[in-house]
Amino acid sequence: MATLCLGEALVDLVCETPVSGIADAPAFVPHFGGATANVAVAAARRGAKVDLAGGAGDDAWGRWLRSRLEDAGVGLDWFRLVPGQQTPIAFVTVDEDAQPSFLIQGEGIGTAIEAVGPRLLEAVEQADALFFGSNTLVGEAERELTVSARDQALALNIPVIFDPNLRLHRWPTPGAGVAEARACVKESFLVKCNREEARLLTGESDPAAAAAGLLAGGAQHVVITLGADGAILRGGGLKLDVPGVPVTPVDTTGAGDLLIGALIAALDSTRFYPASLAAALPAAVEAAARSTEHWGARG
């Protein structure tokens, strides 16, 4: 039994020097990538049993990616390399403020998610928990699969962890993305989002008020990350404000993914005992902050 992480895996080609754009990049270095794969790797490296449900192309980059995921300890029983599909590649540049920009080439995540579709409900039935984000809600086919997986988990009383991870430029309209993400808040064991996502989902600019709004929307527990200011935890009788950790960031790619991966590992080790969220959050905040001192997502 393991936490099933449903979503995307791709290759990040990272320019490991600050530049204003891709035209100024002198070189790129490969890293594993994709928000869900980042979460799975972060959890697995902390001892959690994690399976990644999805796929990549059956090409050289897909085999490279699968090998890295396997080395990190991620379970791949539900991960498929799809013949004829090109593994997505993200060219990543980072500016002087450590903020990344992405140029993605290759097919999207839809085909890979559809590849695991016939076995997805079986995968959920064998899971201890389900993690997913909004990237598999954009396209109609992968949204249907994701929602069915969520519904199956809830019907089986399997904890659901949702990270909106909103990339509104991928949606037909920003409102559509927010609406789909908001619908996934209800009954989730844990919703993790950043300050801006919390505002979009609740209309509240104050993080504490936004957390209250998400709890009112049906989430059992809420973690809102605040960038350099740390994170807050609310729900289930838990209330914790964790201050930020002073760092000199070079690349913030994947910091939030690492944080939620660390929380999943803590939950896995305690059979999803809610108080473990409070115990683990300070270390998760520090790990996420330290990750920004390096290039690329770091589990």
Rank of each mutant, 00 (worst) to 15 (best):
A155D: 15
R46P: 02
P83R: 05
D58A: 15
I232C: 12
P159L: 07
G244K: 06
R63K: 11
A209Q: 15
V160T: 14
T93I: 06
D97E: 14
L13F: 14
I260W: 07
E142L: 13
E16I: 05
A123K: 09
T146A: 15
I104K: 05
T292H: 08
Q99P: 02
I109D: 04
L103D: 02
E8N: 13
L281K: 09
V41M: 12
V92A: 10
R46E: 13
P118D: 03
T252Y: 12
A43E: 01
D71Q: 15
A255L: 03
V124W: 03
G117N: 02
E180S: 15
A183E: 14
A141F: 08
L215Q: 04
A209N: 12
S188K: 05
V245Y: 15
T87C: 05
D151H: 13
L76G: 03
A98S: 14
A90R: 08
F189P: 09
A115R: 13
Q85M: 15
T111V: 13
D24G: 14
A112N: 09
A40S: 14
A216D: 14
P274A: 00
D206R: 02
N135C: 11
T225K: 04
A149K: 08
V223L: 06
T292C: 12
E122M: 01
T253R: 02
P159W: 05
D59S: 09
L201H: 09
I89K: 10
A278C: 06
A2Q: 11
L13A: 03
G299Q: 07
E96M: 12
R119W: 06
V82G: 03
G139K: 15
T252N: 10
A198C: 09
A9R: 10
F28N: 04
E204L: 06
T3G: 03
Q85W: 06
P172Y: 08
A25M: 06
L4Y: 06
E180Y: 12
P207V: 10
A266D: 03
K192A: 01
D12H: 03
H31D: 05
G230L: 11
T93K: 07
W295P: 10
L233I: 09
A288D: 00
T292D: 02
Q99K: 12
G213W: 06
L69H: 00
E142M: 14
V41I: 14
V82Q: 02
L10Q: 06
L215E: 07
A115L: 00
A35Q: 02
G73H: 08
S20H: 12
A262E: 15
S20K: 13
A27R: 14
L190S: 06
P118E: 10
E70F: 05
P118Y: 04
L267R: 00
K186Q: 15
W61A: 13
